[in-house]
Nucleic acid binder design. Structure first.
Lengths: 312, 312
DNA sequence: GAACCCTCGTCATACGTATTACTAACCTGT
DNA sequence: ACAGGTTAGTAATACGTATGACGAGGGTTC
């Protein structure tokens, strides 16, 4: 390759690294670029990594690759990473993370972006880590959705419709949000908040909703921490012969595909997942530069559809 | 590291590569292993890749990271890859794949596993490729779900219930299945098959279903190529005041979360996604070994729920 | 006209591994 | 005792890049 351009290998390296300013004549630069294009030359990555001792690659760790929110997070993170010359590798991290650990090549990675990790990430202690959608008490920089703000928006919407007695189907997995989501609702509905924790699972949520609804003093609205949980609430309502939104208002959270597939379409909160990924990647790159990024909270947007109405 | 074990670097390399049989004394071997453990030594990946000129890494290309079927595919492929000492990297490949291409590091990859790619993968012509869930006419080895078999199972189920006139809401994206899915249905319902193509999108599918249902000679059952399309059919039925399954039977395909979130729960076909990933990875590794793997078709399983019943 | 500087590059080296060729020591059979 | 063989390990090298040290040629300053 150096021969093809008629210069030394050093010069090729300097030119292609963009460090030719004042050190290589413009016409020589051009010759190198021409030869590179003609030969389809790409610098050998392994050699570069070996020489520099760094890979310019970060790892994105997610609990499961199946979730609907993960694609946009990846897209946002990847775009920011690419703009800074970093690569992005994805690794699933199931909650029972036993076998997954061994598959992670810690040495090929400069930093870790972790999303919605419940069990902690102790194996990466030595690497810079930024966490998304996780406990704000985590020692690592945290980039979160503003779930409290989203809950306040929902609470305000329901209160404005005239609801006074509501129920809350809380997602049991992320225990750290239980308090702040509950607080946001309790502020708007003092003294009249029923709460159940439930796994994010249609059948389990249906059961929890049934217990909440199958009593004389049932709430006129159910706030769910997740769209999937809301689907369970729909099923419970139908089982009890309750009309949505006539007899019961239901709200979700996340605005996944399910929200518009249900009948009636679900009032929920849309979360800026792509922005979350981009912000978190920016924070991680700051961390790699030695600066300490600020914890951030990104607001969601209330999407009012047909599952909420004034109480009878 | 070599010093710590009291041997030369060559010996360390030989021992840790497992090629010490008959070349290194067992006690020396043990000393090397002890030192490695004590120092937490991991061979430098970049140096190894540089020396060997290969990365033992394959790329998994998927149209979107958001789909529900992708997680299990990854899991199945990753397990097989890990067992053979290969790493697995994921890259999204949107249908409009313009910008994505530039982000792929072809040189860090030994082979490509592609899933549900509609536009083709011409950029990887030089690398071994195995495609999943794609056109069987593709020149690359193909590992597919047996969609025709799944359709025959659905057709048999509906015919057994007494249906004689059915409609088919076909997914417009993967045009290559249009023919074989249609053929499977036409065999069971000769002369009485209405067909519409639709994007995989609830609102679009609802519209297509409305056109199919809003006529006097409407079918008594609608077969959908996808659970999401079935959700659209549900909406159309409700808009027309048709009861499911009383007035109309509906079937889906894939058995995603949506299938049990809908009311009534959806009769559909569950696909062996994890097995697909594992089989495809096995095929790719065969290809890397210079053998030519056989095209394969994996059967799905009919899951009968509450959206199908005898016609009125 | 000599000392100096600037411009434009090249030389040499190191990164950590895998592997080929080699050596030193020991054994074996006659 | 000596040729030939076996065992156990080391020395040397190459992979392709980035970079600090070096140098040749030409211009500028006093």
């Amino acid at each position: 390759m150096a021969r093809a351009a008629g210069v030394s290998q050093s010069t090729v390296s300097i030119v292609l690294a963009g460090k030719a300013e004042g050190r290589v004549k413009p016409e020589t630069r051009q010759a190198v670029h021409d030869a590179a294009r003609r030969l389809g030359y790409r610098p050998n990555l392994a050699a570069r990594n070996l020489r520099l001792g760094r890979t310019r690659t970060v790892l994105l760790v997610v609990p499961t690759l199946t979730g609907p929110v993960f694609g946009p997070i990846y897209a946002g993170a990847a775009e920011v990473a690419a703009a800074r010359g970093f690569g992005l590798v994805v690794h699933p991290w199931p909650d029972d993370a036993g076998p997954a650990r061994s598959q992670v090549d810690t040495q090929a990675i400069e930093g870790v972006l972790a999303s919605s990790i419940v069990g902690g990430l102790t194996d990466f202690d030595d690497l810079p880590v930024v966490v998304m959608d996780s406990d704000p008490a985590d020692p690592a920089p945290t980039i979160n959705f503003d779930v409290a703000g989203g809950m306040r928006a929902i609470a305000g919407h329901l209160a404005g419709l005239g609801h006074r007695r509501i129920g809350h189907l809380a997602a049991a997995v992320d225990a750290w949000t239980f308090h702040e989501r509950g607080a946001a609702l309790a502020d708007a509905f003092p003294g009249s908040l029923a709460r159940h924790g439930t796994p994010i699972d249609v059948a389990a949520a249906r059961q929890a909703a049934l217990e909440m609804l199958d009593r004389p003093d049932r709430p006129s609205a159910i706030v769910c921490d997740d769209d999937v949980i809301a689907a369970g609430a729909y099923k419970a309502a139908r089982a009890l012969g309750l009309d949505i939104p006539g007899d019961l208002s239901v709200t979700g959270f996340d605005d996944v595909l399910l929200a518009t597939a249900l009948e009636p379409e679900l009032t929920t909160v849309r979360l800026p997942a792509e922005q979350l990924g981009a912000t978190a990647m920016t924070a991680l790159l700051e961390l790699l530069d030695g600066r300490r990024p600020a914890d951030t909270s990104l607001p969601g947007q209330l999407v009012i559809r047909s599952s909420t109405a004034p109480p009878r």
